[in-house]
Every structure is written in C-alpha cells, then in structure tokens.
Design a protein around this nucleic acid. Structure first.
Lengths: 123, 123
DNA sequence: TCGATATATCCAGATATATGGAAATATAAT
DNA sequence: ATTATATTTCCATATATCTGGATATATCGA
C-alpha cells in the first residue's frame, strides 16, 4: 500500500503538513533518513516544548507520513518515504492526470533522476 | 516564480488542500483545465451552499493554487498547474532530496511520461 | 528500590477555521 | 429603471486545532 488510494489519506497528509512546526519536523526527518531522530532531539532543534512537539509528532504519525519505534528510553521517529511517494503520486495523478499505470514509471523515472530508492526501485 | 521557493507558499498550499471540500474543488478544477469552471457550477457539483463555496474558493485562490477571472456575471476559476508543479517540486526536493537543478529534468521527465505540458514543456 | 531521563497524556484556555443566513455588489437582459 | 442572475461580503455560531503546565508512564542505571 505505497499509494495514496483514497482522499482520506491525502487529506490527513496535507493536514499534517499544513502546520509550520510539523512541516519543519517532517523536513528534518526526511534529512535524517534512514536513522531517524528521537522526539526530544526534534523538539530541541526546533525549539519547541517537548509536550507540544509530542502532540505534533502524534499528528504526523497518525497521518501516516511518519513512523516511530521505541529504542530504550527514546522514541525514534522516521519519515515514511513510501507514504511520501504516495502523496506525490496523488498530486501527480491530479496535476498531470497520470493514471496508475503511467505514474508508476514516472516515479521510477524520478528515481533514475537521482532520488533515493527503496528496495522496489521507486523513489 | 513557478517554484515553491519558501515554506510559506507550501504551508498555504497544504493548508488549502487539507479540507475535503477544497480538495474536491481543486481536483474538479484540474480536470476542468484549461477552460475552468464558474463558482456556482462548482458549488452545485459539490452540493455546497454558494457562499460557503465562495469562502473555500477564496482560500484556494489565496494559496496560489487557483486563479480566477470575471467573465460576465460569472467568475471562472482555474487550477494553476504551475503552482501545482511547484508544490510537487517542493515535495520532491524533500522526499527525494532533489536539488533545483535535478528536479527540473525530473519534472520534464514526468512530462515525457505522459502528463500535460505547458509552453515550457514542463508538466 | 530509587532517582534520573525520555516521552506521552490530561486538561483547559487561546486561537483559528468552517459554515450558512442575510445583505451587498456587479453584470446582464427587458 | 427594474428585475433576475452570479457571486461575494458580513457576521455570528459551531467546531476544531494549537499550546503548554502539570502529571503519568516507561526505561535505564546505581
């Protein structure tokens, strides 16, 4: 399920990214791939109280754009590039009116253009 | 200025697309390219009161994703595919960490993959 | 077990957004 | 001029979101 199948997921993703702190956090996490970052570190870097940041991270996680795992006392957050790719595909299918069959190679094309690839070869 | 240069524009765009009625309206407008649709028609198709729709269209216009022009008594709304492309590029630069120079051909690549092209050959 | 660290949850006030009735504006036709 | 049409603006209410203090939970080390 790497594709944003319904509007629901897209709405959640857009909503998550429509808040400054969350957008910054997400960009931070994308840059921090694939290691990810602990919640406290994110809060510190963005200079936001930890509980406020925690609420935002929860929103990001709920939107599907971010994943988390516990590691000792820390909780490590990671950007979910697959979901990100899905959101981009959703946008492309609207913007460029690409259908599913066409957008798949289009995304592969982006991968070829230099972006990070996962095990499936997509960006 | 076809590129989403700062976070401001991206935030406004994400915010505009994070509401169901607006997302539907935007998708409708993308499909209606390049003719566009009058406000009333959009309201009718989405079954939303015209003043409510007007407020949403105003938000979309303010975000830069949608353009409008008066035509007689009607006001015709159109999706701004250039802005749309900018938003996609913003996403790609985060997701795939493409820089400006790389994302340009990547977008052209998408155009080649079958999407609509404008006079500059981008999708 | 106790204290320290990392994070989440609870809660409430502040702020922003969504919604739609009523009235205003702009254009067109008669 | 008057009336009909298309849309916006005004305004108030309802709803959702943001924020951060206080507190709870979970894990680790001594």
């Amino acid at each position: 399920m790497s594709r944003m199948t319904d509007t629901r997921a897209a709405l959640a993703a857009f909503s998550a990214l429509s808040q400054e702190t969350r957008l910054e956090a997400f960009r931070l996490l994308v840059k921090a791939e694939p290691e990810g970052l602990p919640a406290g570190e994110i809060a510190r870097r963005l200079d936001v109280p930890q509980n406020t940041m925690s609420a935002h991270l929860s929103t990001l996680t709920g939107s599907g754009l971010v994943l988390s795992r516990r590691e000792g006392r820390s909780i490590i957050y990671r950007a979910d590039l697959t979901a990100m790719r899905g959101l981009t595909a959703f946008l492309l299918e609207d913007c460029c009116r690409l259908d599913r069959e066409t957008s798949a190679p289009a995304l592969a094309c982006l991968a070829a253009a230099g972006c990070e690839t996962d095990k499936n070869g997509a960006c």
